[in-house]
Computed example of a mutant assay.
Amino acid sequence: MSDFTTEQFEDNNRGFAQQRLERLLAGSGVAFNGPNPWDIQVFNPSFYKHVLINGSLGLGEAYMNEWWDCEQIDETINLILRTSLGESQKFLSNFATWAQAKLFNLQKRSRAFHVGKQHYDIGNELYVAMLDERMVYTCGYWARADNLEDAQKHKLDLVCRKIGLRKGMKILDIGCGWGSFAEFAAQQYGVEVVGITISKAQADLATERCRGLPIEIRLQDYRDVGSKFDAIVSLGMFEHVGHKNYRTYMDVARKCLKNNARFLLHTIGKNDSRPGADPWAVKYIFPNGEIPSLRQISAALEPYLIIEDVHNFGPDYDHTLMAWFNNFDNAWTKLKQNYAQKYSEQFYRMWKYYLHACAGGFRARHMQLWQIVISSSRNQNTYRRPE
């Protein structure tokens, strides 16, 4: 009879998983239990097997469960993604997530409000603490800014100038959030805005913040908009549309655009056109989320809409996310004290991981941030990007 115990079998399994992960990380500059602030400090030996089996889902869950930590999660992710390991996505992929996105329409009308309830409705107090004063939950524009407030102000003004806002125009804001763009455009450019969102918490606070301005906030899916507008903006909403609905989305935009009107699409982008998204982010942060590629966006526009301009300032999202984390971290003690039933220590680790991992993704140029100016193919005007 063999003296090989169950404990020894488990130890061997853990040893194999650790060795396999170490080989995968070789050349990335990231080590297990190393001296650098981006090295992964492992506290639970089950970490290795869990991550090897579950990829990026396992890595995020293990962090939430305090199985590992490090001083600079953002740099850990950056270094991993910059290697061939990150490019091949052997370490940060999940076949089930890809297959689900390929086979099913995860963002169909009946599922449209899921992300609102899970992500945007978790508590306005969280977003008030984390974001700038205008509550802009999209990438800031840091070309001439050294703080979050100015970066977001510059971004909003850049959007207004790109779509050529003039007093008296009526604008559609698809995915209006807490009303930041609508409020800015109405106050600074004298326009009327209709903002739509799938979050009740956003709609309620946006209505309150925009009271007294020519702004209408609707709790509405984009597929239910039918009016004509002088311009359309969509800032950070396209990531919830899904590749099976890109054509539908663009058809709605086309039908809502008046002749010679412009549509500005501000979206996170990815470098390839494979369906699906990071499984950890989909499970814990953005249910049914999917980041588009330029090819997917371009194909959805054909043949009735044309691209006038593509502006990529993805590295600015790194700065934005780290500024958001600093605000969140500074407010954490008060949030935990005042809303203990909502915000646990595990929530803190989840939210920290979300912000840092995304920052690392942008730093590695694994993700992009595009502002795309679009118009009807009937538009005869020449577009020039404002400086």
Rank of each mutant, 00 (worst) to 15 (best):
F104P: 02
E149Y: 02
G27P: 07
M135T: 11
A281H: 00
V30D: 08
F95T: 05
I217L: 07
S234M: 13
I285N: 09
F113R: 04
K200A: 08
D150W: 04
L335I: 15
V128R: 15
V193S: 01
S28R: 06
M130Y: 03
D221P: 05
L294D: 02
D121H: 08
L294S: 03
K167P: 10
G360N: 09
D318M: 13
V310A: 08
D132E: 14
A101I: 05
W38D: 03
L131A: 01
I171Y: 03
L106G: 01
F328S: 06
V225Q: 11
T333W: 03
R218P: 01
L235D: 00
I215Y: 03
P386R: 15
F43A: 15
P315D: 14
Q188I: 02
D272E: 12
I268M: 12
E125H: 06
E7D: 15
L305T: 04
M130G: 00
F184G: 01
W280C: 02
R254Y: 13
G226W: 10
F32D: 12
G195F: 05
K228A: 08
L126M: 13
I174S: 04
V193K: 01
D157P: 09
D278T: 08
K102R: 14
L301V: 07
M237F: 02
M350I: 11
Q188W: 11
R211D: 11
R134H: 10
R166N: 10
N326R: 11
L79C: 06
M250I: 07
S46P: 03
D309G: 04
V194R: 07
L79E: 01
W324T: 05
N327C: 06
S46I: 12
W370G: 02
A151V: 10
L257D: 05
T5C: 07
E87T: 13
E61L: 05
N78M: 15
K352S: 06
D278Q: 09
G179F: 00
G164M: 07
R14P: 04
E208C: 12
L25H: 05
W178M: 10
Y141C: 02
R109H: 15
A96N: 08
G86K: 00
G168D: 14
C256K: 04
R144M: 12
T6V: 03
S273M: 10
I215H: 02
A203Q: 14
L305V: 03
F362L: 02
R144T: 01
V115Y: 07
K336I: 02
I73G: 02
Q202L: 11
R109F: 03
T6Y: 12
K244C: 01
R161E: 15
N271I: 11
R363Q: 11
E149M: 10
L172V: 06
W142F: 09
S234K: 06
Y137K: 09
N245A: 06
I306R: 05
W280N: 03
S199Y: 00
E387L: 10
P292S: 06
Y284W: 15
Y189W: 13
S273I: 04
W332T: 07
L92M: 14
R14K: 15
E125N: 09
V373N: 11
I372C: 08
L257Q: 04
L81M: 09
G195M: 06
L57F: 05
P45W: 05
W38A: 00
K336V: 00
F113Y: 11
S84I: 13
F325K: 08
Q202A: 07
